[in-house]
Design a protein around this nucleic acid. Structure first.
Lengths: 169, 169
DNA sequence: TTGACATATGTAAGTGCCTACATAAATTGC
DNA sequence: GCAATTTATGTAGGCACTTACATATGTCAA
């Protein structure tokens, strides 16, 4: 490596950054977790996409649900649900039918293959939960911290906080 | 809404989920922050992409750097840097030249327009830093918690933690 | 000094979300 | 009972990353 600048460039600059890098920091953490989870499914020999998790779990626990209900419950856009649905339906893990009482709605439910997939992955998910609980404890309760962040942002959004400090306020 | 199932579906199911949802939880938080930051730049009337931030900051503080140096410093892939570079260069905020001593390398640096953009955004970034510091305090030191999470994962990865609990160990 | 390997950058395609927009069906007000 | 609005779903394309692979250049050992 050239000695031109190597000495002066920090090894993990994002750690030293404030506001505008907080999102990047969170993104990086989520990507690490996602990557590791993907590896675990691979080692377990099961084709599985992260985005299936919430939907499969909800359908397994609560039976048939609409796209909108799932989106609301998982706090994601309905579009994300629609996309995951396409992916799950093409592999026949879920099926969908139009609601008899409201034909705008589409009710999703597990197929027997979907149920089998959930049963198959249950032990892995249990282990992941255990591991996550340990990680959470070791990190000083990340989950509580994320809850607190959401609360803080609900009290006053980042936009409001910044605008308050600006001539644009 | 039909009464079919509404009562039984939790409002924020991802909060009640453990391991496999931790990544989703982090992702959601990062998206909230990113979205708000995007709004702030919009209100400030400046076209700005999130992914420019780290690179512009590094180049502003440390002068010319290579793609690899930037990637290492920001803990992102070199591909992410290459893509951001294309975006920044097409708008003439940065320029690049091949390293004289090693023609595999490409040294990126700010143009005068790039420097002007950084100077223009400095006050906003300062406000965002202040706001982030406040959010960090209100959330119970999110940054420290993320540091601790990274440390915990470095001690033992999620993969190892799960495999240890599995017959695959 | 040349062949094997390592390093730096770049391209293509994928991931899991998103916003903006389109369409169809239900509801509401007049 | 019909237009205006709201609600539910769907499509197109974007974002900030990623992995897998391709190419060019440098390094090092026999």
């Amino acid at each position: 490596m050239s000695s031109r600048s190597a000495n002066s460039v920090p090894l993990d600059y994002s750690k030293s950054c404030g506001g505008a890098a907080l999102g990047a920091r969170l993104r990086r953490a989520s990507e690490v977790i996602d990557r590791q989870a993907t590896l675990i499914y691979q080692m377990f020999g099961t084709e599985f996409e992260q985005r299936w998790y919430g939907i499969l779990n909800l359908l397994h626990r609560f039976g048939g649900l609409t796209v909108g209900e799932i989106a609301a419950s998982l706090c994601i856009s309905h579009v994300a649900v629609v996309q995951a649905r396409a992916s799950l339906e093409s592999r026949q893990f879920i099926k969908s039918k139009t609601d008899i009482n409201d034909s705008r709605r589409r009710i999703l439910s597990l197929t027997s293959q979907g149920r089998a997939l959930v049963e198959h992955l249950m032990p892995i998910w249990q282990h992941m939960d255990d591991a996550a609980r340990a990680l959470n404890a070791e990190s000083g309760d990340l989950v509580a911290t994320l809850d607190a962040l959401e609360d803080a942002l609900a009290r006053q959004s980042l936009v409001d906080r910044v605008m308050k400090r600006t001539s644009l306020a």
